[in-house]
Design a protein around this nucleic acid. Structure first.
Length: 591
RNA sequence: CGGGGCGUAGCUCAGCUUGGUAGAGCGCUCGGUUUGGGACCGAGAGGUCGCAGGUUCAAAUCCUGUCGCCCCGACCA
């Protein structure tokens, strides 16, 4: 590409001395202050020349890595008709987050939040043979989601730029290969962008796919909590699977005993009472010895409401997000007083599974309420739990002997120190910002929209798909978030709006003449140059603006200009060095 | 949707308690001095005080309603 130089006196920008009042995070403050973006509406931004330059650099890197494995770029409109989204059910499923509008004939349209439907239909339109596959196509395009709460500038907007790819295969092995190609490309993209990332297993639930991973950038302002082990395991909290302990032998365990347990409405009071009145010899009772039976109300897709009970170790709390995943697609909430009123068999505060000969919980029990267990409650474990009578608990109730469940679900919270399911050691919790997502969609969309091809045997087979996203504008914010100091932005070289920022510092004729000549020669050598040529602006202001704008390399043409020397200033390190005019190009390349 | 906060000049804010002709700093324009860390002097331009209604001789200020925005939480392929 032809190198360009831009004069700051002509550039459409105005830097702000103070932080905008509506900005909270560093990237938002700095991108607005430095004149890269301007707010138009909540979560919606206008892009100024500097902002567009950075955005295009990021897009360029993404394009190179996708084209490198054969993905091809297309472009769809953001404004789409309702029908395709009606066919897949997403017109309603997407809910309030979908921007809907009507045309003059009262027909429904939407501003697309993502494009699975129309990509699928376009492939259906053009292709009908297995010979045409595999295919990976992508676009870089603005997406629209009416977020309940846009925040943090570019990090969560209602309009944002996303690179979305879709792969089309006719075999599961093909899908695996396409998925891997995207995953590899994403790793290269984030490495080139200098972004730290963790690839975490994500919950695939709602989209109906089989395999899904998120690229999370670890940062305290991240919106997602994830877990990772020193041994390399990483997963979303929602996708974390507990490593179940081995079952224990049941033979020889003492029979369960019911004790009076007055005034024990909470786990802690129960533990205290147990240690005071029924101490055991080897060790004190702990919360983890108790089995807490949590009553949840599910609302199924058909609108029906069902109570379920989950037994979890008493030292754990319920993580409602994990519960949502466990019972998807049903909605989950805590049971209400009204729910309890409909089930007089439940003694609130003293609920337990009952005994083998008289089960209280479970599909085939007296109550008929489905009963699930945490994976830690394996056969042979012994518990203190409710005896289904007011102020009575049962001690030594053994899983697999005294009670069984209708299934195992994960609704308990994940904690630092829990063992990773792959045996790679204890996990720690970290915050992350999702910067990429790879997803095996499977045949859901192809099925709904009728995308089939003829295979080698002349038989129609449904295509299997993947979808892959990278948030372009979010990445720009994440880079800004990671690369700044108290004075302004510090862009990595490969996404900086310019290669060099030349400052004419001083008022003498020779300073400006020297700077002009230097800018010309740098441009000729292939550098994109931003030239601060403002005649009546003091050096301090120019230095401050240079730091704010964040071009990584700065050349100061000033007091030594007459002697043919200028200063090279590294924005990131703050180092300055004096170089001769004829060495500037080489010195810049050496930085 | 729940909680908190805020709407006054392009930006950041004061003024409101106790009603009386709209303010500051930065930015912008003109003239002059200055020029290696956000200079200075002088003269200017720029505001339906979010909107509507009410109280009052008089409302940025008091009352009612309404709209919008920001932050925290819930939510987020």
């Amino acid at each position: 590409m032809e190198a360009v130089s831009t004069r700051l006196s002509q550039l459409f920008v105005r830097t702000l001395r103070e932080d905008p009042v509506d900005a909270e995070v560093a990237s938002h403050k700095l991108l607005v202050r430095a004149g890269y973006i301007r707010r138009q509406a909540p979560g919606i931004f206008a892009w100024l020349p500097l902002g567009l330059k950075v955005r295009r650099k990021i897009e360029g890197i993404i394009r190179e890595e996708l084209e490198a494995f054969g993905a091809q770029e297309v472009h769809f409109p953001a404004l789409l008709p309702r029908e395709p989204y009606e066919l897949t059910g997403r017109w309603t499923e997407y809910g309030d987050a979908l921007f809907r509008l009507k045309d003059r004939k009262d027909a429904d349209y939407l501003l697309a939040p993502t494009h699975e439907e129309v990509f699928t239909l376009l492939v259906k339109d053009l292709y009908s043979s297995y010979k045409d596959l595999p295919l990976s196509i992508y676009q870089i395009q603005d997406k629209y989601r009416d977020e309940a709460r846009p925040r943090a500038g570019l990090l969560r907007g209602r309009e944002f730029s996303m690179k979305d790819s879709y792969s089309f295969d006719y075999t599961d092995e093909g899908l695996d290969a396409s998925y891997q190609a995207h995953r590899d490309a994403y790793e290269r993209i984030f490495q080139r962008l200098g972004l730290e990332y963790a690839i975490v297993k994500a919950d695939a639930g709602a989209m109906g796919g089989s395999k899904s991973e998120e690229f999370l950038h670890p940062t305290p302002i991240g919106e997602d909590t994830f877990v990772r082990s020193a041994g390399g395991y990483a997963a979303n909290v929602e996708a974390f699977r507990t490593l179940p302990p081995a079952p224990l032998p049941i033979d020889g365990l003492p029979t369960a005993i019911v004790h009076d347990s007055p005034n024990t409405p909470t786990i802690q009071t129960l533990v205290d009472l147990s240690n005071a009145q029924f101490p055991r010899e080897d060790r004190p009772w702990e919360a983890g010895d108790t089995l807490k039976n949590v009553v949840l109300a599910l609302t199924h897709l058909d609108g029906s409401r069902e109570l379920v009970i989950v037994g979890i170790p008493g030292d754990r709390d319920v993580d409602m997000k994990r519960a949502e995943v466990a019972f998807a697609p049903a909605e989950v909430e805590a049971a209400t007083e009204a729910d309890f009123a409909k089930h007089p068999g439940l003694v609130k505060g003293y609920i337990g599974p009952g005994f083998a000969e008289a089960p209280v919980l479970g599909e085939t029990s007296a109550t008929g309420i489905r009963y699930f267990l945490d994976p830690r409650v394996v056969d042979g474990t012994s518990w203190v739990t409710g005896a289904n009578q007011h102020e009575k608990h049962v001690y030594g109730l053994v899983a697999g002997r005294d009670f069984v469940a209708d299934g195992v679900v994960e609704i308990a919270d994940v904690r630092a120190g829990d063992e990773a399911p792959d045996g790679s050691g204890p996990v720690e919790l970290a915050r992350g910002m999702e910067i990429g997502h790879v997803f095996q969609l499977g045949r859901k969309y192809a099925e709904a929209l009728g995308l089939k091809v003829l295979d080698e045997n002349g038989k129609l087979v449904t295509v299997t798909m993947g979808s892959y996203g990278i948030g372009v504008t979010r990445i720009m914010a994440v880079i800004a978030e990671t690369n700044n100091d108290g004075k302004g932005l510090i862009w990595p070289k490969n996404v900086a709006p310019f290669d060099v920022h030349v400052i004419a510092a001083g008022r003498e004729e020779v300073v400006f003449a020297t700077a002009e000549a230097l800018v010309d020669s740098l441009e000729e050598s292939g550098f994109d140059v931003l030239f601060d040529d403002r005649p009546k602006v003091s050096p301090g202001v120019k230095f401050g603006d240079a730091e704010l704008l964040g071009v990584p390399l700065i050349v100061i043409v000033g007091r030594d200009a007459a002697e043919g020397r200028v200063e090279l200033w590294n924005r990131a390190t703050g180092e300055r060095s004096s170089v001769g005019l004829d060495e500037v190009g080489a010195a810049l390349l050496a930085q």
